[in-house]
Design a binder for these strands. Structure first.
Length: 446
RNA sequence: GGCGCCUUCGUCAAGUGGUUAAGACACCGCCCUCUCACGGCGGGUUCAAGGGUUCGAAUCCCUUAGGCGUCACCA
């Protein structure tokens, strides 16, 4: 049986759209699930759109997403070069062959000489797509395509076919936007007498705008490149996992959390969806959270390190334990812990809490007593703090919440905090804690 | 506009002639609880419309509508 070989063939734009990443991922998963090869090929035949360093960027992005090419510009391989601008003589040779066979012709314009593919004017061309079945388009719909531009560069339609054949690509996995140009490619294969690869045209990834409109995912939908998402603080594994499920689902399973190895094992073409999928940040957030929750505190502290820099090592790890169940992306962290650095302004209303039977007056009394007890704590550890406060609660005859609420508010000046009173006391340290408690008591008594 | 593709909860989706139409996210409620989370339990909403075929249709056929794509010396 023929070896399975797929390819990802981006043009070097310096931007890895989520839709492109998904295409690369599916091509990779399919190849790997079949024990085949995955090729990276750079389609840089448009000189006007060339972006410097874009190849590095693509390679770095794929590496971050753990999509590892077997062959590519910097991965080696038997079919090098893998950059189209370095293969110009090859395209020229095949274009001339087509002219010689009568399937193409020279065209002279002010810009220079180009070569055009001669399309049949009658009949129709049919090709088989794994997802869509047979697709037939009348040849009269096809215009004579430019194969070789006047600058000597091939067009996508030509270079793609030549390279896919030469590189022995068995399965072409790409976006639906190519479905209507596939007959042109099929005709080229026929003109050359080459064996046709298998086509799989993927449905697009859509985005939902604020007003509810759905359209192809683009920048107006927010962060839509792999890099945007990384910068927002999503884990690459989580992004890849989420993207894999956007247009594919496993057979006979409801599993949603997949490592790359598990994806490779579970992947099959018949799990691919032929209708467009809307990118849903809410679900990405959930999935991302699942990854964080599954991490150890130390591992989380490590990935979140730049947000936790202000804390010493034990506190860092402790904060990580509090944060990892509350965070969808790392950039959610600062607003959650800013109060530890600088407390929000005093707000007396926060000291009123019906459920815990707390009023500003009551709070003042509790604070007064608590300050006395806490200032006597010699060893400022979570255990010690817990014990002291528990003893105080028991002795006072108050509800736990009635004691905790005013303390937490006095320390944080906000209604919502990651962790509770004891945790905040510990993170703040004895000195700062007592400072804040006293300041709040002073304002409450005024 | 021509041609092509697509259409199951708000979203991702399972489903391939007979199911109470899975599951997940989101949402709502309850429990847990010093807040928020986490965790647990429960809930509502879906086969685009209309015709067929069939004893029986989300599943097959036709029509309509809507969405998307494509008609470049861009990929």
């Amino acid at each position: 049986m023929k070896r399975i070989r797929t390819r990802f063939a981006p043009s070097p734009t310096g931007y890895m759209h989520i839709g492109n990443l998904r295409t690369a991922l599916y091509a990779y998963l399919f190849a790997k699930s079949q024990g085949g090869d995955f090729i990276l090929r750079i389609e840089d035949t448009d000189r006007a759109r060339y972006v410097a360093d874009a190849v590095d960027f693509i390679e770095r992005t794929l590496a971050a997403a753990k999509i590892i090419p077997d062959e590519g510009p910097h991965h080696g391989g038997a079919f090098a070069p893998y950059v189209q601008s370095e293969r110009m003589d090859i395209y020229k040779h095949y274009a001339e062959e087509l002219v010689a066979k009568g399937h193409a012709y020279y065209e002279e314009t002010e810009q220079g000489v180009a070569i055009r593919q001669k399309m049949p004017t009658v009949g129709e061309t049919t090709f088989y797509d794994v997802l869509h079945g047979n697709i037939t388009i009348a040849n009269s719909e096809l215009e004579d395509q430019v194969l070789l531009k006047s600058d000597g560069m091939p067009t996508y339609n030509f270079a793609n076919v030549v390279d896919d054949h030469l590189m022995e690509v068995s399965h072409i996995i790409r976006g639906t936007e190519f479905i209507t140009s596939t007959p042109k490619h099929v005709l080229l294969y026929e003109f050359f007498g080459w064996e046709l690869p298998t086509f799989i045209h993927l449905a697009p990834v859509m985005g939902k705008a604020a007003d509810g409109t759905i359209s192809k995912l683009s920048k107006r939908h927010g962060a839509t490149s792999f890099n945007d998402l990384i910068e927002a603080g999503y884990l690459p594994e989580a992004i890849t996992n989420y993207v894999a499920l956007l247009g594919w689902s496993p057979k006979n399973s409801c599993q949603e959390i997949f490592s790359m190895d598990e994806l490779i094992k579970a992947f099959s073409l018949d799990g691919l969806s032929k209708s467009p999928a809307v990118f849903d940040y809410a679900k990405l957030d959930w999935m991302s959270g699942e990854y964080f929750k599954a991490m150890t505190d130390t591992a989380f502290a490590e990935v979140a390190d730049k947000y936790l820099a202000a804390f010493d090592e034990p506190r860092k790890v402790f904060l990580a334990s509090l944060l990892k169940t509350r965070v969808a992306k790392l950039s959610d962290i600062p607003p959650m812990i800013d109060f530890l650095k600088t407390p929000p302004p005093f707000d007396i209303d926060l000291f009123t809490n019906k459920r815990n039977k707390v009023t500003p007056q009551k709070s003042a009394e509790i604070l007064h007593a608590a300050i006395k007890i806490l200032s006597e704590v010699a060893e400022w550890t979570l255990e010690a703090l817990n014990d002291k406060i528990a003893a105080f609660v028991a002795e006072s005859g108050l509800k736990v919440g009635s004691v905790m609420w005013p303390l937490r508010i006095a320390l944080s000046m906000q209604k919502v905090t990651p962790g509770g009173t004891t945790e905040i006391l510990y993170l703040l340290g004895k000195e700062t804690s007592l400072e804040r408690l006293n300041a709040a008591l002073e304002k409450l008594s005024a």
